[in-house]
């Protein structure tokens, strides 16, 4: 259980006046749940995700995972960014290795091979990042997060830079992986369809200051059909709340 209690985040703005990016966020995320954070830009959804990852610290409130408080990055929580963030000087394999340097060599090899397999890039291990398409690069980033076997995976608009076709196939693939690896998934998105297609629960946020304004359950069985009447209806209802 990932718990967010009264999380607040202020930044020092221009002229010294503090800007409140997040005000009093309360949120509980259950094991193996998929939660989508959605909202207009500036609503603090990415800031919240960064706080969950441990990359940023709240100025008030706390985040805890199974009762232990999160104050910095931890191996149980993985993060996938909007851009793949691969090291251009390392091959695909070596890029993934960066996430498992704490393990011994044979275990590293085993895990890297497994992670590459998982994202369907078993033959791309020797390529340089500059030789990858956008979709392939993001798959490598996913493999780099999976290779640490996180119990919680955070994704910050992970497919927003990709074309519609690649996005759809990566979303399908992500659900498959989620189903088999049993992690909890928290994703930030501004794409209504993505939220309805992937999430068990959609958390709607609004700016000025960033706060949660409503929540929506999506009780549809998977696999979902992106073009079904129920999905379209949910999208419309979600749009009204934004």
């Amino acid at each position: 259980m990932l718990e967010v209690q009264g999380v607040e985040r202020q930044f020092s703005g221009r002229g010294g006046d503090p800007v409140t990016a997040l005000a009093g966020i309360d949120l509980g995320i259950a094991e193996h749940e998929i939660v989508a954070l959605i909202g207009a830009s500036g609503c603090g959804k990415s800031t919240l995700l960064r706080i969950l990852s441990g990359l940023d610290k709240p100025t008030g409130g706390a985040v805890s995972l199974d009762g232990r408080s999160i104050t910095g990055p931890t191996p149980e929580i993985g993060m996938i960014f909007q851009d793949p963030r691969l090291m251009p000087w390392l091959s695909v394999r070596e890029n993934i290795r960066v996430a498992v340097l704490h393990l011994d060599k044979p275990e590293q090899e085993r895990r890297i091979t497994q992670a590459l397999d998982r994202v369907g890039l078993q033959h791309a291990g020797g390529l340089w990042p500059r030789e990858l398409s956008g979709g392939m690069a993001q798959r490598v980033a996913i493999a780099r997060a999976l290779v640490r076997r996180p119990t919680i995976l955070l994704m910050d608009e992970p497919f927003s830079a990709l074309d519609a076709f690649t996005t759809a196939s990566l979303q399908d693939h992500m659900l498959e992986i989620w189903d088999e690896e049993r992690f909890t998934l928290v994703l930030v998105t501004h794409d209504l369809e993505e939220a309805v297609f992937l999430a068990d629960r959609i958390v709607v946020m609004k700016p000025g200051p960033g706060r949660v304004t409503s929540e929506m359950r999506v009780d549809l069985p998977r696999p979902r059909d992106r073009n079904s009447e129920t999905v379209l209806q949910l999208k419309r209802r979600l749009a009204e709340r934004l």
């Binding site: 990852s53 441990g54 990359l55 990055p73 191996p75 993985g78 993060m79 960014f81 851009d83 963030r85 090291m87 000087w89 390392l90 960066v98 996430a99 340097l101 704490h102 780099r144 640490r148």
Partner: peptide, 23 residues
């Protein structure tokens, strides 16, 4: 952004230099 990847993956300062800063 790459330094953040190092932080998320728990790299030590030495590893961050070796894998990101130097290259």
């Amino acid at each position: 952004r790459l330094v953040e990847v190092a932080r998320i993956n728990g790299l030590s300062s030495f590893q961050t230099i070796r894998y990101i800063l130097l290259p």
